[in-house]
């Protein structure tokens, strides 16, 4: 008789056994940071023997492995089932998986639909609201396909003059600009705060629309390395999936023909992301790279703004920020400091 039990990875001895098990099943390339970000891990046991395991991070199923043999499919289904009911009990009815291509069929078999795949990886989703639902919430203008549409994707953590400059450029050179604000909540500013500040910050451009990126643009599922430090090859295949998903699924729906990027002098991860976009998007989508905005002799970055918040020197970066963002930071200074105190990463993206 098999039983599902939670594995508490905070306990070092259990964690060691769990890692050993994953190694035995050929899952080796995961970072400490990824493991720390897990919300829930379970094990399938026969007595004391571990037969399989699976984890959850946000709405993403991770680190699923079962022992090989006749019953491996049964064990796999039991684990996926248990993870799904955990998510649904916690009010999360949409879930995603990021896995190796050889496991695509196993997930298809239990109702997951493939969103995009490369030679190294494959991204699938299940449940509701799925990508079709996401598309329905993107209001098309009636004859969108006759317009020149460009897209800008920003985390805007927080929204700076630099973001505004990039969007302004796109707005001048195109008929419609769709701005996607990343939805993952792994940044100093929450997704609602970031979305709100972008929306207000570009309200005076009449041809700009702002959408949440949902699970499909640089999300925690498509591109975890954006939020947690990872190796270059990991970043490369994750960004490829993200770029393909944009090119094949999102861009056609909105008739997006161009994507505007800020040139990236600082962030290593974003720089690789830009290179991947340049490699994957054309010829369907033209990539336009805009040099970063400078104030005086300084380049405007949100990273500098977050550092200034941490050091309580917000006036130093006043020139970097639109009035609304600056006001917001002043009004919420103690709350932001508290988040930094709790360990939100401010030096990454």
């Amino acid at each position: 008789m098999t039983k599902i039990r939670q594995i508490f990875l905070q306990i070092p001895s259990l964690k060691r056994k769990w890692e050993q098990f994953l190694h035995q099943q050929g899952l080796t390339s995961f970072s400490e940071a990824e493991v720390t970000n897990l919300d829930f891990t379970l094990g399938l046991y026969e007595g004391q023997k571990l037969l399989g395991t699976g984890s959850i991070s946000d709405n993403v199923l991770k680190f699923i492995a079962v022992i090989p043999g006749e019953l491996s499919a049964t064990y796999f289904n039991q684990i996926v089932s248990a993870l799904q009911s955990y998510l649904v009990q916690n009010g999360q009815t949409h879930m995603m998986v990021f896995t190796k291509p050889q496991y695509e069929a196993s997930f298809n078999y239990v109702g997951f639909k493939t969103l995009t795949k490369t030679i190294q990886g494959c991204l699938l989703e299940s449940g509701n609201p799925g990508i079709q639902q996401y598309f329905k919430n993107l209001p098309n203008v009636s004859n969108q396909n006759q317009h020149q549409v460009a897209a800008v994707v920003v985390n805007a953590n927080p929204f700076t003059m630099g973001h505004r400059y990039l969007i302004e450029k796109a707005a001048q050179e195109n008929e419609i600009v769709d701005v996607f604000v990343l939805s993952a909540n792994h940044s100093l500013f929450t997704s609602d705060e970031r979305f709100h500040l972008v929306k207000l910050g570009v309200a005076d451009f009449k041809n700009v629309r702002v959408f949440p990126g949902g699970s499909y643009l640089v999300s925690y599922a498509t591109f975890p390395a954006y939020f947690i430090v990872s190796k270059d090859n990991v970043i490369r295949y994750q960004t490829t999936l993200d770029a393909q998903l944009f090119r094949d699924q999102i861009a056609p729906v909105l008739n997006i023909k161009r994507r505007y990027l800020g040139d990236e002098p600082f962030s290593h991860t974003t720089n690789i992301y830009n290179q991947t976009l340049k490699a994957v998007l054309p010829p369907k989508i033209q990539v336009v790279i805009i040099p970063r905005l400078q104030q005086g002799n300084q380049i405007v970055t949100a990273t500098a703004v977050r550092q200034a918040i941490a050091h309580q020197e917000i006036t130093m970066v006043k020139d970097f920020l639109p009035e609304i963002t600056y006001q917001f930071i002043q009004d919420h200074q103690s709350e932001l400091l508290e988040r930094i105190g709790k360990g939100v990463n401010i030096s990454g993206n």
Partner: peptide, 13 residues
């Protein structure tokens, strides 16, 4: 959105 059942053999989700 609600779910009932599992993906185990002889069941239906």
């Amino acid at each position: 959105t609600v779910i009932a059942g599992t993906l185990e053999s002889s069941d239906i989700q």
